[in-house]
Simulated scan of single mutants.
Amino acid sequence: MARKPGSSPQAMKSRAAKTAAAIAPASALAQSAPAKKRTSPAQFLREVRAEARKVTWTSRKETWITTVMVGIMVVLAALFFLAVDFVLGLGINLLLKLANGG
């Protein structure tokens, strides 16, 4: 039976060395990362305010439409699970009646 190309021990060692070389710089870089500088509470609050200004709030109309859509989906899901539960209950009752002999 012929061996697959690249399955010799030397080829496997070569691939392992290449993989180790590719991984090594990433781990060395992670170990030498500088420690984060602590920010003052005032700087933190300035950054929070800057980020809060970027927030876009939905309008009252968009909120109302979304609320109504969620309500409709809840009702539809409840009806679906009610129907599935009813059908499965009928099937199990029929199966149990057959198992008991009628």
Rank of each mutant, 00 (worst) to 15 (best):
M1D: 13
M1E: 14
A2C: 02
R3I: 04
R3L: 09
R3W: 08
R3T: 09
P5V: 03
G6H: 02
S7K: 04
S7T: 13
S7Y: 06
S8I: 01
P9H: 03
Q10D: 13
A11T: 02
A11Q: 12
M12V: 14
S14W: 00
S14D: 02
S14Q: 05
R15I: 05
R15C: 02
R15G: 06
A16I: 05
A16G: 11
A20D: 08
A20C: 00
A20E: 07
A21Q: 14
A22N: 10
I23T: 03
A24N: 05
P25C: 02
P25W: 01
A26R: 09
S27A: 09
S27P: 00
A28Q: 12
A28P: 00
A28N: 11
A28T: 05
L29W: 07
L29N: 13
L29I: 01
A30I: 10
Q31N: 11
A33Q: 15
A33T: 14
P34T: 02
P34M: 03
A35F: 06
A35I: 04
T39K: 13
S40Q: 01
P41A: 03
P41K: 03
P41N: 02
P41L: 01
A42E: 15
Q43C: 00
Q43A: 11
Q43T: 07
R46F: 03
R46V: 08
R46P: 00
R46N: 10
E47L: 03
V48N: 02
V48T: 06
A50Q: 10
E51M: 04
E51G: 09
V55R: 05
V55I: 07
T56G: 01
T56L: 04
T56D: 07
W57C: 00
W57N: 00
T58W: 06
T58Y: 04
T58M: 09
T58I: 05
S59K: 01
R60Q: 06
R60T: 04
K61I: 04
K61A: 13
E62S: 06
E62A: 10
E62T: 04
T63L: 03
T63G: 03
T66F: 13
T66R: 14
T67V: 10
V68L: 14
V68N: 08
M69Q: 15
M69I: 11
M69D: 15
V70A: 14
M73H: 06
M73G: 13
V74A: 13
V74K: 05
V74Q: 06
V74S: 11
V74F: 09
V75M: 11
V75K: 05
L76Y: 11
A77L: 10
A77G: 05
L79R: 01
L79N: 02
F80R: 09
F80V: 12
F81K: 00
L82Y: 06
V84F: 14
V84L: 15
D85Y: 13
D85M: 10
F86I: 02
V87Q: 10
V87P: 02
V87S: 11
V87W: 11
L88G: 04
G89W: 07
G89A: 09
L90D: 01
I92Q: 09
N93V: 03
L94S: 14
L95W: 12
L95G: 15
L95T: 08
L95H: 08
L96W: 07
L96G: 07
L96M: 13
A99E: 14
A99G: 08
A99C: 07
N100S: 15
N100T: 08
G101F: 09
G102N: 04
